[in-house]
Design a binder for these strands. Sequence first.
DNA 1: GTCATTTAAATCGTGTACGATTAAATCGTA
DNA 2: TACGATTTAATCGTACACGATTTAAATGAC
Lengths: 152, 152
Amino acid sequence: MKDFLSLNSQLCFAVYETASEFTKLYASVLQPFGLTYTQYLVLLSLWEKDAVTMKELGARLHLGTGTLTPMISRMQENGWIQKRRSTEDERKVFVYLEDKARQQQMAITQKVAEEIQLCNIQVEEYNELMKRLNDLHHKLQDRTDHKKLGRS
Amino acid sequence: MKDFLSLNSQLCFAVYETASEFTKLYASVLQPFGLTYTQYLVLLSLWEKDAVTMKELGARLHLGTGTLTPMISRMQENGWIQKRRSTEDERKVFVYLEDKARQQQMAITQKVAEEIQLCNIQVEEYNELMKRLNDLHHKLQDRTDHKKLGRS
DNA sequence: GTCATTTAAATCGTGTACGATTAAATCGTA
DNA sequence: TACGATTTAATCGTACACGATTTAAATGAC
């Protein structure tokens, strides 16, 4: 049990600190553009696939409406995106990129790339870390899936 | 640049999603105890070293007073810890574990261990992930250090 | 065709998170 | 020893993040 406590607390801190350092790096790059890290994730998602509903966007980012609704409103106020209620099904709200977001994509990506390069992260490391994160991610998800199905 | 955009967005999502899934796992275990994930990190830190100042606690958790002060107050209201201003130097505020926190350490750790075991995470994976996270963590920090010193 | 159910967003309350500012105590040094 | 600089917390404003509730629209069973 003592082993577990120690290993566990190390992992808790590692995940927590690394994620927050990571976020801060991006935040510092994004600030001049008037973007937060989460808003940047929204743009990343929309650059891949535009014109999605709040529900789909929330699913992609694993965010509920309690987080998404006010954030998307702010992004609309800042001219990054547009929200429009569907006429077909008035429950749905679609989100669209504004020109500003398309025009600045390269500039933002460029600045992020420059900052990342300062860290000297090798592609191998990049991929290995991502693999490890995704493995953990899937194990965490499988666990909840098993629970929902009445444990495996 | 296109390569970078794709790799970068994958890593952004991987870090973000994994950290939030990870946090949610702990949150679900901790909720019956009336603890949040961050409050649990405070306990982990104090179980290792009790009777520290707000400043030291903030340094250990990489949290500023804007986050820490209200959180520590809540934890005091809930009987986990005690805050006492130093008589030697009245600028300093020391944080102490309450009996409740010591008494429940095993029960909390046990519940967390049970939940983690459901994920079938191997020790090798555990260590490898931690190594990768810490490597990234250090590279992120070195980068800011270089900047402060007028770039390397 | 009506009404219960389901679906999609918005809203609310609580709790992080962070940068900037403020306030009080202590320290350094003339 | 006086006083400006530094240190330590607290406070403030903005922005996530999440669970729970609410509201409105669409769907489905009868």
